[in-house]
């Protein structure tokens, strides 16, 4: 039964992926302005025809879509045109090889840090629900969640980076090159991204936990003489984590392409920067492939969370079977 659920989810995911990527192909075609005119404004007729063929504009959208899809499945993400449009560019894949690991790591660290801090904080707030402490902290968190991450980033860079001289203010160091520098280079970006998420996550968790705390099984657990901490962590947290997990999945997807500002502030240059550059320089194939990757990321993270959720809450397993 479990496998059937998983298979069904997978099938759904693949369908969504098809729809998303196919819509992108159509949208790209619907865009006003001739891509050839934009990519090669001064090209000769032969040059235009060549680029037209390469961008698949000379065939119908279905054919084009499948040729792009098969390229993608073979790991060919298209070419990043350097205005020449005839192979003078760089394979998007090699650019991804640089940018994607960075973004994935930043996303991973950010999620880990956010969850690690948000969960105890949310638990604490739920435990103290409606007291003055809770109200004060909740209001502060609300305010914090509306501070843009780049503002936090710049403030950190100035105070921690320049004034205290503790951490580098720009640049990314790959883990393989120097593990300690790798972490040092990512502390401030990850903290900047995490602060807002911690605020959001802990508030979500607080609400769900307060609801769960009213459940009979919580009273039952305390009537067994268990400590509050034990009850909060072992009894209340898991059944209260669905909203948090759903939100985390969305944030994971969003962080892949959406950390542009922080990537820019700390000169990390990950996936987000790659995508904005692709858009700014009208890299049609790259845009389509990158957007498809983001869609895949969303779907994969949602699948992961679905699975995790089923692990965390057996009701889900039973319910769907």
């Amino acid at each position: 039964m479990k496998y059937r659920v998983a298979l069904k989810n997978l099938a759904k995911a693949v369908l969504v992926l098809f729809l998303v990527t196919f819509s992108i192909s159509i949208l790209v075609r619907w865009l006003p302005g001739d891509p050839i005119e934009i990519l090669m404004p001064f090209a000769t007729e032969e040059g235009r025809a060549a680029l037209r063929a390469e961008l698949g504009l000379d065939i119908n959208v279905v054919q084009y879509y499948f040729s792009w899809l098969f390229d993608l499945l073979r790991g060919d993400f298209g070419v990043w045109y350097a205005s020449t449009g005839d192979g003078g560019g760089v394979p998007v894949r090699s650019m991804l090889a640089v940018a994607l690991p960075r973004s994935l790591l930043i996303m991973l660290y950010t999620m880990v840090v956010s969850i690690v801090f948000a969960v105890p904080l949310g638990i604490f707030l739920a435990y103290r629900a409606e007291t003055r402490t809770d109200k004060t902290i909740s209001n502060v968190l609300f305010a914090v969640s509306s501070i843009p991450s780049f503002a936090i980033g710049l403030a950190l860079a100035f105070v921690v980076g320049v004034q205290l001289d503790l951490l580098p203010v720009i640049g990314y160091v790959p883990f393989a090159e120097n593990p300690s520098e790798h972490f040092r280079s990512l502390v401030m970006p990850v903290v900047s991204l995490s602060i807002g998420l911690i605020a959001t996550f802990s508030r979500l968790l607080r609400v769900d936990m307060i609801a769960t705390l009213r459940e009979d099984f919580v009273t039952m657990a305390s009537s067994k003489g268990l400590s509050n901490m034990w009850i909060l962590w072992r009894h209340v947290l898991r059944p209260s984590s669905s909203t948090l997990m759903t939100s985390a999945a969305l944030q994971m997807g969003a962080l892949i392409g959406g950390a542009v500002v922080i990537e820019s502030v700390f000169a990390l240059n990950g996936f987000g920067m790659l995508l904005t550059t692709a858009i700014a320089t009208r890299q049609y194939l790259a845009i389509q492939s990158l957007v498809a990757l983001i869609a895949i990321a969303y779907i994969v993270f949602n699948l992961i969370v679905d699975v995790l959720y089923a692990v965390v809450d057996p009701r889900v397993r039973g319910g769907r079977g």
Partner: peptide
């Protein structure tokens, strides 16, 4: 040549001696 889009961060890095 490192691209740092944010001018404040170029300043910070320069002051720190990262560049």
């Amino acid at each position: 040549y490192k691209v740092v889009l944010d001018a404040a961060q170029r300043t910070n890095a320069l002051v720190k001696g990262q560049a």
